[in-house]
Structure formats: C-alpha cells, structure tokens
C-alpha cells in the first residue's frame, strides 16, 4: 500500500524528516508516536502533499505509484485522506456543499456518477451516525464556530464519506475530553477494514487504548528510532520518550 524509503524533507531549507523508512500494508493500523517537534505532523502533511514542504531525497510509493509526483487533490482522489490536527475554518462555505463537492470530484475521477443533492443527503445522514453528529452541522460553515471535539468529529465524518484507502490521522486525539475521544475513536474503529490502512499520529498513548494499532513506531528528531507492536506504546507510556532517545535509527521496518 505505502512504502516510504529514506525520506528527507523540510521547509524553508530546514530539514525536519531525516531519513524516514516506513512500510504500511493494506488494512494495517500504524501508530507513529513521538515527542513534540519530532516531525510527526510534517510526515503526515508530506504524505498528503502540502506544497510548502520540500522533499530533498528518498521516495514514497503508494499503490505502486511515485506519490511525490502527484498533487494533493489527486492523492485524495487516489484514496489518501489526512485528518487535520487543526481543521480549517472556512467562512461562508457550507459544510454539506463542501463535502458534496469533494465527494463528487473524487467520484468523477474514479469514473463513478456524481451524487445529486438528494442522494448525497441520504448518504451523509447515514454517515453522521458513525460520529454521532447532529444534522444541523451540515448547514453551518465548515468548522466555523465548532468546538474542538466537533471539529475532530467533522474530520472523521469526512473520512467516512470519502472512504479513503489510506487515512492519516494527525493528532486526532489532541484537545479532546474523554467523551469526545471515545466518540471519535469509535468512529475510526467503525471505519477499519481490510482494505483501509490507517496511520495514527499521536503524542499520547491514550488514543491507542481505544484504537488498537497493529504496529507502533517511535519518531524522534525526524527519524523512526524504534518500531514494535502495540505493547511498545505501553512501555512508552510508563517510561516516557527519554529512555529511547539515542537509540539507532531503525532501517526498514516490518
């Protein structure tokens, strides 16, 4: 599904990712953990194709294609989805219109018929149940005036509608109280499937109590220094990131 090889990337000439190696298979859930500033979010945004980042060397292969050659909107149409750490508020653009535009662009790219307003409404009402969202959110501007929890739910709702093959959830747990975390995590769990890979980027282990990963990677200063199973997250929670610092960079994982 996804293979990252010796990826070096950064912004404004400053290298943030210093040789990332990561392989994600279909249906797998990988957690990428690390302290603040380790480059987790940069990795997430580079995968989604944010153009302000430069890739200096290395490669990303997604479904056999060179991902770095593909602009962000086409990555999305090819099935990549990034749940933002800070979902963007878009004044004057209604949530429902936004999502319908996105879904129809993806559908037409895939040679599927676009949904009309009625069909879309049927679909979205079903999907909203996954994250327990009130239909009134559909007619509000995208993320405007949403609480932190509502924004994150909205991200998962978008994921449910767009049905990605690779979802990257960037700090989806940050800023959530325990109830909101449960709703969001249960939404993600409902979306797990053998065809859908998920990368969870997170600082804390607590999200992983709700979403059980298949693999855990620890990222420090732009490299993945340790990889393992879900028990690695528990060790991290007990011992903190300090015990791992200074460990040699992991080469190819898995």
């Amino acid at each position: 599904m996804l293979e990252i090889r010796d990826l070096r990337a950064g912004i404004d000439g400053k290298e943030i990712l210093k040789g990332i190696n990561l392989k994600v298979g279909a249906g797998e859930v990988h957690a990428v953990m690390g302290p603040n500033g380790s480059g987790k979010s940069t990795l997430a945004r580079v995968l989604a194709g944010e153009e302000s980042y430069s890739v200096y060397s290395g490669s990303i292969t997604y479904k056999g294609q060179d991902l770095l050659e593909i602009p962000p909107e086409r990555r999305a149409r090819e099935g990549i989805f990034l749940a933002f750490q800070y979902p963007v508020e878009i004044a004057g653009v209604n949530n429902s219109y936004f999502l319908k535009s996105a879904l129809n662009e993806i559908r037409s790219y895939r040679g599927l018929e676009e949904l009309d307003a009625f069909e879309f409404l049927e679909l979205i009402k079903e999907k909203m149940k996954i994250v327990d969202m009130d239909p009134s959110f559909l007619n509000r501007p995208v993320n405007e005036g949403f609480s932190g929890g509502e924004k994150k739910r909205n991200e998962i709702l978008q994921m449910a509608v767009l049905e990605p093959q690779l979802a990257i959830l960037d700090e989806t747990d940050s800023g959530l109280d325990i109830d909101a975390l449960r709703v969001v995590a249960s939404g993600v769990n409902k979306l797990r499937s053998p065809e859908r890979s998920i990368i969870l980027v997170t600082h804390y282990q607590r999200l992983l109590n709700y979403i059980q990963p298949d693999f855990v990677h620890v990222m420090i200063d732009g490299t993945i220094v340790k990889s393992g199973g879900k028990e690695l997250a528990v060790t991290l929670e007990e011992k903190g990131y300090d015990w791992i610092k200074g460990a040699p960079a992991a080469k190819a994982v898995k």
Partner: peptide
C-alpha cells in the same frame, strides 16, 4: 490545502473559497 486534501481541484477550491468570502 485543506480543500485539495479532500480531492477538490485547485481551481475549484479557489472558487469555493472566493465565493465563501
């Protein structure tokens, strides 16, 4: 970027944002 990451083409994203304004 947010809109493009949802599959909305660059030109369409600009139009939607401008209209939203």
């Amino acid at each position: 970027f947010y809109m493009k990451s949802r599959g909305i083409g660059a030109a369409h994203a600009q139009k939607i944002l401008t209209f939203g304004f």
